[in-house]
Design a protein around this nucleic acid. Structure first.
Lengths: 147, 147
DNA sequence: AGATGTGGTTGCACATTGCAACCACTTTTC
DNA sequence: GAAAAGTGGTTGCAATGTGCAACCACATCT
């Protein structure tokens, strides 16, 4: 993972992927959003090898995406919880979910949807919008330098 | 990358990551959105090893994210272009960009921003919204099964 | 105290990656 | 039209990363 190539470091996409672009990190974050906090919970939920999980959790903590706190149930174990910084990642996860549901649907899988907790109604699909609210496609935007 | 664990296959996030969750795929897609089409363009832009690029391009084509077409300049070479299916991924990239810009800013890097091509004004930041338009945080949503 | 659960670390076999060399074919240059 | 350079790969090898199982320290339960 020699991702520190010259042309990459300056792109925020690449920098994000540096933190969460590996095989397991985003799935750990996803489970954390689902309320999982303990080593064993991630372990059984993901089916990842223990040493890999250890490595990933450390990396996520090092990147400030997770932090360890004393266990909430009073036991001596620690728990991994999402930091404020990690909250922004839920948009990435939702975008992935949305894309996966639209384009990678499997046959016999239970359909799940995200609902607003207050109204119990499905959320709006994620969309890119101009300042005046028009929905934009990939070809409608351009990347420019801001001085 | 034994990601075909029992509990994973059913999650659209995991299925998306199956396709684009490895080290280079999303960066290739990003460059493709930037208009890159040729093997050599990706190669020099990403700094990836040639054999890895070959593998990734094949995988992306196999997943229907890229497709090969005869070169647009009339030469005998082929080009890799994004499929319709891939268009949905730009939301993922923008979410990553947004998160990376907010949380992973480096010091000496040129600030870039996405603008609407028509009005030349910055786009709205991506946000999760309820059906009635309220902006929602990660804790405001819940995943439910739809029958 | 003994058994079990939790949260790791270590060692090893295997898979993946990065790197460089090589190769077939195409395009340009002389 | 032959040589040189460019394009798009493939192959082999060394280094790194991953999955798996065993082990271990500590905590908790009985």
């Amino acid at each position: 993972m020699n991702r520190k190539h010259l042309t990459q470091a300056e792109c925020p996409v690449a920098r994000s992927l540096e933190a969460v672009g590996d095989w397991w990190s985003l799935l750990i974050v996803r489970d954390a959003f689902f309320g999982k906090r303990r080593f064993g919970e991630f372990l059984s939920s993901l089916g990842v090898a223990r040493n890999i999980l250890t490595t990933r959790l450390k990396k996520l903590v090092a990147h400030g995406i997770l932090e360890t706190i004393p266990a909430s149930d009073g036991s001596a174990y620690k728990e991994y919880v999402l930091t404020e910084k990690a909250k922004g990642l839920y948009l990435v996860l939702i975008a992935l979910r949305q894309w996966g549901q639209g384009c990678m649907t499997n046959d016999g899988d239970q359909e799940m949807t995200l609902v607003d907790r207050r109204t119990r109604t499905p959320i709006q699909p994620l969309a890119l919008r101009s300042a005046d609210g028009r929905e934009l496609g990939p070809e409608d935007v351009e990347l420019v330098a801001v001085q």
